[in-house]
Design a binder for these strands. Structure first.
Lengths: 143, 143
DNA sequence: GCGTATTCTTGACTGATTCAAGAAAATAGG
DNA sequence: CCTATTTTCTTGAATCAGTCAAGAATACGC
């Protein structure tokens, strides 16, 4: 959690114009990690009831391009956004309810960054998604 | 590549009814690894010009549920299907053209299967996606 | 303040995928 | 082989996330 002026500073630091929708979107992503676009729109509208969905989409794209937020999209899910950037962390996703949690890199610094055969690709990122059942869903099933 | 009767045997082995659309879809997935649904529909219609898109969607879901094909969906891409199942391999995706290639598991058998903190999830799979530029796209950019 | 470039609003549109109802086809049993 | 039952396929409409486009509003350098 940060204050409005901190979000403004972050935007300026990324050479972006400071607008109310952008500050509200950045704040919503910080307040609701892994939220989908629709949840972010609803959160933003608690502050700014009149923002258009397009402004939120534009802001999310701009913030993602600037590296201030990160977009994730597990298979079968819509796009989700988080504020934790630049630390090479990964995600665990519940197959049943879709909830997402953060996972630090498993072994050492970048365990999976080296593919066994890179097919002449120049690889810049390795993204790991763990799949399973969250605590609630797995107890709900066994009971 | 396999013959029609082999695909039929695979379907029966999975306790699935053998229908022409399913055989054609299975064959198309084997012939076109990492193809999206639309490419598969077009490939299937070379054999069976009258199949509905819905039959292809249904077949792909049924084949995926039976474990005969695997569905992958990198961020920002539509669903893609492949016939290589059960061997814990991963994918490298080109950020520019979206092409997908297979990558064997990097280190040992299941390098990333152990999350550092599983948040009480029961994890059953670790999926690794490598991002970068394929050979063609990276030479096209530097030239 | 002013001017200009960027961003936001409005509203239509696309494209992948799903839903639903009835027709057709596949297996089990006789 | 024939029939019954269940699954699968066809047809056509609908949904949903996200994009496109044109003009109005706003931010910020001067």
């Amino acid at each position: 959690m940060a204050t409005t002026s901190e979000y403004q500073r972050m935007l300026r630091g990324a050479a972006m114009r400071v607008t109310r929708p952008r500050v509200a979107v950045l704040s919503a992503v910080y307040a609701h990690p892994h939220a989908d676009t629709d949840s972010i729109i609803r959160a933003v509208r608690r502050d700014l009831p009149e923002v258009s969905h397009q402004a939120v989409y534009d802001s999310l794209h701009a913030l993602t391009a600037a590296g201030l937020v990160r977009r994730i999209q597990p298979s079968g899910s819509v796009a989700r956004y988080e504020s934790r950037v630049g630390d090479n962390h990964h995600h665990v996703v519940c197959r049943s309810c879709g909830v997402v949690a953060d996972v630090d890199c498993a072994v050492g610094e970048a365990p999976c960054l080296t593919a066994s055969d890179d097919h002449a690709f120049s690889i810049d990122e390795a993204e790991v998604t763990y799949w399973g059942l969250c605590h609630d869903c797995s107890t709900a099933r066994s009971s």
